[in-house]
């Protein structure tokens, strides 16, 4: 069963064509490395899949069913989670609160429902352990390092047992050691059958973890092929336009 099928996805802002007729296929447990220069349309594509705005034209299917998203919540219900570049965290809340934000664990005392901080801290600690990240669930996000913040944002997506996780530059602002941790994590997501769409500028990261590489140039998909059949040189050429298409 194919997890995600995009056919003819286009997006225009007035006269500007951000995406023109992008068609892509994503299998379960496949890591897709999405590459392209600034303004090539990567973020636009990710935001369409995440339900931030609908495409101007085109169709999206998940597990064979056509889906239309009006807001991020719609995409989340279909098992699509996104880790944004700015991470979208609340600095003033604890790591565990951020992981559970919008879907807090509750306990009941008769008719009263109250937050189950203990369970949220335990589950968050468990997720951080899986991510092998030294992140304390009770600490405020304000006081955390770039890598820890990344771990919080990724732990958020794992909470709902997603089908597809999209990551926008997850390795851009963290230490070398933590880059390896994040890449290991992506491998672990794949082992659980979760599909990952990874946007990155870092060629080594993409080739270390991606099964398939897709390249966007000026809103057009110029390549989508197995990583094993490509090379960093070819991808660089595709991004810059030195190579027309592959």
């Amino acid at each position: 069963m194919t997890r995600l099928v995009l056919s003819g996805i286009s997006k225009s802002y007035g006269a500007i064509q951000a995406l023109s007729s992008v068609s892509l296929v994503l299998q379960p447990g496949e890591v897709l490395g999405l590459m392209g220069d600034n303004g090539a349309g990567k973020s636009t594509l990710v935001k369409i899949i995440a339900g931030n705005f609908p495409p101007s034209a085109g169709e999206m299917r998940i597990d064979g069913e056509t889906v239309v998203f009006h807001k991020p919540r719609d995409a989340q219900r279909q098992g699509i989670e996104a880790v944004y570049q700015d991470l979208a965290l609340c600095d003033n809340l604890s790591a565990a609160s951020n992981v559970f934000l919008g879907r807090e664990a509750m306990r009941s005392l008769g008719p009263l429902k109250y937050l189950n901080y203990r369970r949220m801290n335990e589950v968050a600690a468990d997720l951080f352990r899986q991510l092998k990240s030294e992140t304390r669930p009770r600490d405020l996000v304000r006081k955390m390092s770039g890598g820890q913040r990344q771990a919080v944002a990724i732990a958020r997506t794992l909470l709902s047992q997603p089908k597809i996780v999209m990551m926008d530059e997850p390795t851009a602002a963290i230490s070398v050691r933590q880059v390896k941790e994040v890449l290991d994590l992506i491998g672990r997501l794949r082992d659980h059958g979760i599909s990952v769409i990874l946007i990155s500028h870092r060629m080594p990261d993409i080739f270390a973890v991606a099964d398939r590489i897709a390249v966007l140039r000026r809103g057009e998909l110029v390549a989508s092929k197995p990583a094993a059949e490509s090379s960093p040189e070819e991808v660089t050429g595709l991004i810059t336009g030195a190579i027309d298409a592959a």
């Binding site: 991020p72 919540r73 989340q76 944004y84 979208a88 965290l89 609340c90 600095d91 934000l101 919008g102 879907r103 958020r156």
Partner: peptide
């Protein structure tokens, strides 16, 4: 972070 709150639904 109002933006984050909105994104989390």
């Amino acid at each position: 972070n109002e933006h984050a709150a909105l994104l989390t639904g």
